[in-house]
Structures are given as structure tokens and as C-alpha cells.
């Protein structure tokens, strides 16, 4: 069980699990790690647009680059200004 799963367990909410279509862990404003990402729709050094199972996610910032991209995991590094669900 991952750390996020532990946290989730604390809430003890089954609905929360059912609604979960992606997971994101933010490391300050320097990096974000996402799971269950479908694909990268577009990518510039100011915006990374990710496609999820339901909808998409925009990561905005400066000097963004994809540190890791494999299977359904994406790690984005750089100066992250914000995350927007679309």
C-alpha cells in the first residue's frame, strides 16, 4: 500500500476511491508526480496538457520538462505555478 493509499484509508470513503481517476503528488513547486495518466496531449516549457481517463489536466509553470514518462506515470519538473483540471 502506497503512502497515498494510507492517507485515503484515513478518510475511509469508498466513494472517494470510486471517483479517483488519477493521483497527483506535488513536491512543493518543483515537481509533480502523476499516476493514471492516459497520454500527453501537448507539451511546452510553460504548459503540460495531460489526458486522463476523464477529462484532462493542465500543469502550468516555467521551464517545465518531463522528468519521467512511462506506462501511466508522468513526473513533471520545473517551476510549477498551478494545476488546472479541464
Amino acid at each position: 500500500m502506497s503512502f497515498i493509499d494510507c492517507i485515503k484509508g484515513c478518510f475511509n470513503s469508498e466513494e472517494l476511491s470510486a471517483a479517483e481517476d488519477y493521483r497527483a503528488v506535488l513536491f512543493g513547486d518543483k515537481a509533480i508526480y502523476l499516476e493514471r495518466v492516459k497520454s500527453i496531449v501537448s507539451y511546452t516549457d510553460e504548459e503540460v496538457y495531460l489526458s486522463l481517463k476523464k477529462g484532462g489536466l493542465k500543469i502550468k509553470g516555467k521551464g517545465l520538462y518531463i522528468k519521467k514518462y512511462c506506462a501511466e506515470d508522468v513526473a513533471v519538473c520545473g517551476n510549477i505555478k498551478g494545476i488546472e483540471r479541464v
Partner: peptide, 21 residues
């Protein structure tokens, strides 16, 4: 459309690192 290459590579099971445009 470099994103397409990333997607295809990922689907082929290739792990990508330090992708910089």
C-alpha cells in the same frame, strides 16, 4: 507533433526521461 512520438513510445513500454522541448 512530438507528443505523438512520446505516446507511441510509452505505449510500446519504453520509459522516457528528461523530456525537454
Amino acid at each position: 507533433n512530438l507528443e505523438s512520438l512520446l505516446k507511441i513510445a510509452k505505449n510500446k513500454g519504453i520509459a522516457l526521461f528528461d523530456v525537454k522541448k
